[in-house]
Design a protein around this nucleic acid. Sequence first.
RNA 1: UGAGUCAGCCGGGCAAUUGCUGCUUUUAGCUCUUCGUUUACCGCUUAUUGGUAGUUGAGGAAAUUAGCAGAGGAAAGUCCGGGCUCCAUAGAGCAGGGUGCCAGGUAACGCCUGGGAGGCGCAAGCCUACGGCUAGUGCAGCAGAAAUUAUACCGCCGGGCUACUCAAUUUCUUGAAGUUGAAUGGUCAGGUAAGGGUGAAAUGGUGCGGUAAGAGCGCACCGCGCGACUGGUAACAGUUCGUGGCAAGGUAAACCCCACCCGGAGCAAGGCCAAAUAGGAAUCCUUUUAAUGCUGCUCGCAUUGGAUUCGGGUAGGCCGCUAAAGACCUGUGGCGACACAGGUUGUAGAUGAAUAAUUGUCCUCGACAGAACCCGGCUUAUAGGCUGGCUCACUUU
RNA 2: GGGGCGUUAGCUCAGUCGGUAGAGCAGUUGGCUUUUAACCAAUUGGUCGUGCGUUCAAGUCGCACACGCCCCA
Length: 128
Amino acid sequence: MDDYGFSKSARLLNAADYKAVFSNAQFRVSTRHFLILAISDNRSRPRLGLVIAKKHVPLAVHRNRIKRLTRDSFRRNSQLLANLDIVVLARKDADKLDNKQISETFTALWLELDTKLKRNAAKLLANE
RNA sequence: UGAGUCAGCCGGGCAAUUGCUGCUUUUAGCUCUUCGUUUACCGCUUAUUGGUAGUUGAGGAAAUUAGCAGAGGAAAGUCCGGGCUCCAUAGAGCAGGGUGCCAGGUAACGCCUGGGAGGCGCAAGCCUACGGCUAGUGCAGCAGAAAUUAUACCGCCGGGCUACUCAAUUUCUUGAAGUUGAAUGGUCAGGUAAGGGUGAAAUGGUGCGGUAAGAGCGCACCGCGCGACUGGUAACAGUUCGUGGCAAGGUAAACCCCACCCGGAGCAAGGCCAAAUAGGAAUCCUUUUAAUGCUGCUCGCAUUGGAUUCGGGUAGGCCGCUAAAGACCUGUGGCGACACAGGUUGUAGAUGAAUAAUUGUCCUCGACAGAACCCGGCUUAUAGGCUGGCUCACUUU
RNA sequence: GGGGCGUUAGCUCAGUCGGUAGAGCAGUUGGCUUUUAACCAAUUGGUCGUGCGUUCAAGUCGCACACGCCCCA
């Protein structure tokens, strides 16, 4: 698990995968510009899906930019995210941020997600 | 040098590290899987055949090695045209829609080129839905006398009748009556279209003659219509000739007429494989009505009915999917758009959707903006920069 | 990606054939009522999405652009 690749096995591929995440999201973290939903799975690797609505980011160029930056941040931090299926949604004015701000935002969000995940695991252990 | 105008081109560069997609390629035969071969075991049957594990052959997926390629001039809007696919082989008529000076180019176009006409500009040059209201029908508020084969309200003009005033003159006794003329007013029947606050628009313009006053009523010049002639393929043009006193207002991005063009849907088209699920599906043959579909309608065509056979099909996957009316160079023809011939080159193909991120560095400090079946146009957005032609102004020689 | 529709007062909508744009609700003022609501009367409010064009005249006709909505797997 020391590669930083982002191939098809690391993406959500069809409508069923997305539906699973939306309908029973276990973890939610967000900022003013982004919302992250996630569920834990028994896979060996994390998977990412992106939902960048045209309504919130009107220009195709900006949508593509946000997706690229999100993927890049995801693959750099994939060790943190163990076996999660993650969906990232863009909110309004997400296109107003520059590249550096987006990268920083995601790094922070991954960390927050990681702490939530660990707390959850600890809780499960305590219950047992 | 400055201002302008037209045409063409570029659309951050370089390096390092880490990534993505496609194609080709390397490796281990460790993982999964499809089809075939064959061995053993198990179950079942008249025969077949099915399952599990292994041998071996071919292929695929994923991984791995290396290499190559990887957004635009608008990729955009979807405003037109074409290819391609299905609907019948794309058919007939009506309806409907589009185009609209002429000629040419093109696969085609609402595009482009050349020409004509009109308009703008000192000029280079630019702009124009630019057929027909002397085929028909309709429309024009308010204002104005009048809004359409013009009309006659005011005004102007002479005439008849009449009222009154003035002047001249006749008759007879101071005064009165009559006649004639002039001015003014009223009235009657006419003549006029020069002038008349209006209005977007008022039925040729200027001058002279003419007249009671006026008027293309007549004449000259200008303008306009029609015909001929000449030039031009044509639109159209003319210091040309003849003819008409002028009759013909606006609106067709009003209905409409004329000429030419258009079948419908769209890659979410359409085809193939195929969990789930539901009971039909495919092929052949046949016929009347009805229903549905092919476009709004009519004609016309197809399907539902019977027989034979066993596959059909949603999620998902694959094909369609990129070599093309291609790009570049040279030559020939043409004013040109473009065409033809020869040569060179091989240039994204994603699918929750690739072409990027970070750092360094340089400069002029980087605009508008992201392919989704493919082309030809148009339109709209766009920081800054480069090249060439032409025009005007100024300066110098 | 493709196809279709819309934009008029604060809100919901009319506007036929081009001729100075209306209705209902809401708002304001007055009346009625002890007061409020209801009711009655009067009244305010419009760059007709934006621009260019055709026309004497454009909400209406033509073109371009902007924004919003719906449908097709």
